[in-house]
Computed example of a mutant assay.
Amino acid sequence: MSNRNQSQESRRRAIQLLGGLPLAMALPSRAQEYPVRPVKIIVPYGPGTVSDLTARLLAERLSELWKQGVVVDNQTGAGGAIGTNAIARSIPDGYTLGMLASNHAMNAALYSNLSYDAVKDFKLLVHTTFNQFAFCVNPGLPVQSLRQLIDLAKERPGYVTYGSSGNGGSPHLAMAKLAYMAGVQLTHIPYKSNGAGVTDLLSGQIMMMSTSISVLAPHVKAGKLRALAVSGQTRSPLLPDVPTVAEAGIAGYEMTNWNGLVGPASMSDAIASKIQNDVLSILKDIRTQERVAALGAELAPLESVAFEKKLQAEILSWTEVVKSAKVKVD
């Protein structure tokens, strides 16, 4: 037999062999190969936020696991909408992911003209962590508890001023929800950044602020601020002596700033499942747990179905708050 005929016969036998095997055994799937090149995680919020730090922690651990570079790309602007739109419109091959936060649900409640659908345009992969907010006042304000603050606000509507990182952000809506549920009128002073608001709170230019516990706890422990309550269902390990808002007198109040890994909606289920399983395994690791705690965050792993239910419920809840509290954005 000639070399050419031998080659043809070899190819014929190989095709017959492959034809008798399941496809998954015959050829490696994309999910089995993934990733074969670097992966990008878009964060629609600024460097140093809990969302950014959570994304960087996952990027580091996934790089170790996948033996591929995983980089974080902060695409800020429009309250997170610019980076979020970039995630939704990215190629759905698993090489562009995103780290979203509670602000994603809030934007859906605040804006009717977003360039994306907050649920339908995303493949929700893993809800990863959350961080609580602390409600703090300057010690010069003569209140020792949240109940005393509410009583003061009822006696003097609009007298109590509070700062935030800007209209429509989570610090703004956390306070708007508190005021709405307490039935009081507070005066909102938006800043261009969280840090600018904290600076004025420390100096007494504003009376109150609510933002991530990790930001405010050092000032509370130094005696420069007074913490009246924390925003979650349970007390925070960072401020264990400070009651929750519900314990302090506003039953039913809860607000946590969650973080979750997502991709564009049409990403394949196989790749999405691999990413989800790999991230969940990382979140179970003690090294990850210790570093999450150091960020002032708490672990809350949720798979895609539970993550989507949470997101839809939050959009409905914030829509009610925005409407009832008449929250305005520029």
Rank of each mutant, 00 (worst) to 15 (best):
S203A: 13
S165G: 15
N194Y: 12
V184D: 06
P171K: 03
N167D: 13
S210C: 14
T187M: 06
N194K: 12
N194E: 15
M181A: 07
I189T: 07
S170R: 00
P171R: 06
S193K: 02
Y180G: 00
T187P: 00
I213E: 15
S212K: 03
G204K: 09
M181W: 04
K177S: 09
S170V: 14
T199L: 05
A176V: 01
M209R: 06
M209F: 14
G204C: 07
G204V: 04
I213A: 11
M208G: 01
I213H: 06
S165H: 10
M181E: 15
M207E: 12
G183H: 10
A176C: 01
M175R: 04
T211M: 10
Q205L: 06
G195C: 01
G166D: 07
G166L: 03
M207T: 00
K177A: 06
I213G: 11
A179S: 14
G195R: 02
L201W: 08
G169S: 14
A176L: 03
H188L: 06
I189L: 15
S210V: 04
G197L: 02
M209I: 09
K192T: 04
I189S: 08
L173P: 05
L178I: 12
N167W: 12
S210M: 14
T199C: 00
L173F: 06
G197N: 00
G168C: 12
P171Y: 02
M209C: 07
D200V: 02
N167Y: 13
G204I: 05
M208C: 14
T211F: 08
L186N: 09
T211W: 01
S193Y: 02
H188C: 09
H188G: 06
G169I: 00
L201Y: 05
Q205F: 05
K177Q: 13
S165D: 09
S214Y: 13
P171W: 02
M209A: 13
S170G: 04
G169L: 15
G166R: 09
P190R: 04
G168L: 11
L202D: 08
T199I: 06
P190D: 05
P190E: 03
Q185W: 00
S212N: 14
A179L: 03
K177C: 01
A176D: 03
A179P: 01
G204L: 09
T199A: 12
Y180I: 00
L173E: 06
L201I: 08
L178H: 13
V198C: 03
G183N: 10
P171A: 03
Q205P: 01
T211Y: 11
Q205K: 15
M207S: 09
Q205E: 03
A176Y: 02
A196E: 08
Y180F: 07
T211R: 02
L186F: 15
L201A: 09
V184T: 13
L201C: 04
K192F: 10
M175K: 07
G168I: 12
M181P: 01
G169F: 15
L202F: 08
L201H: 06
G168V: 12
S212G: 15
N167M: 14
A174Y: 00
M208Y: 05
G195S: 08
H172F: 10
S203Y: 06
A182L: 07
M175Y: 05
S212W: 14
Q205R: 15
T187L: 08
T211N: 10
A179C: 04
P190C: 04
G197C: 08
G197Y: 00
A182S: 13
G183D: 07
Q205M: 06
S214W: 02
G166Y: 13
M181Q: 15
T199H: 11
K192I: 02
V184G: 10
L202N: 07
L201M: 11
H188Y: 13
